[in-house]
């Protein structure tokens, strides 16, 4: 977990625990925004700015390899989850 670089959340273009794909494939995926998350397959890796216990940081999914991860999306802060 590194300090926040101030950038937006972005997919790394690789699956968790897999080497990155060649650049051209990444570019293609970016333009068409293909859903790549599939049950039974490796999770698409990403980095995202985050708030964590008093500080701003950057979170990367693959940093959690070796642990169970619960990834939750929700419509917005100040709503229920």
């Amino acid at each position: 977990m590194s300090e926040s670089s101030g950038g937006c959340a972005r997919p790394t273009g690789a699956m968790v625990g897999e080497p990155p794909q060649p650049n051209e494939v990444q570019e293609e995926a970016k333009e068409t925004t293909v859903v790549t998350a599939k049950v039974g397959s490796k999770a698409p890796d990403f980095t995202a700015p985050a708030y964590y216990q008093g500080g701003f940081t950057e979170v990367k999914l693959s940093d959690f390899l070796g642990k169970w991860v619960l990834l939750c999306f929700y419509p917005g802060d100040f709503t229920f989850v």
């Binding site: 997919p11 968790v16 625990g17 925004t33 959690f64 619960l70 999306f73 917005g76």
Partner: peptide, 29 residues
């Protein structure tokens, strides 16, 4: 960007659906 590749980003409303993924220690959903 992340919501799109996980199939939970709603383009019409511009927010993310209530998506929940259990990912194991090998990174498999």
């Amino acid at each position: 960007n992340v919501g799109r590749i996980y199939g939970v980003y709603d383009e019409n409303s511009g927010v993310e659906l209530r998506g929940r993924f259990i990912i194991d220690p090998d990174g498999v959903i």
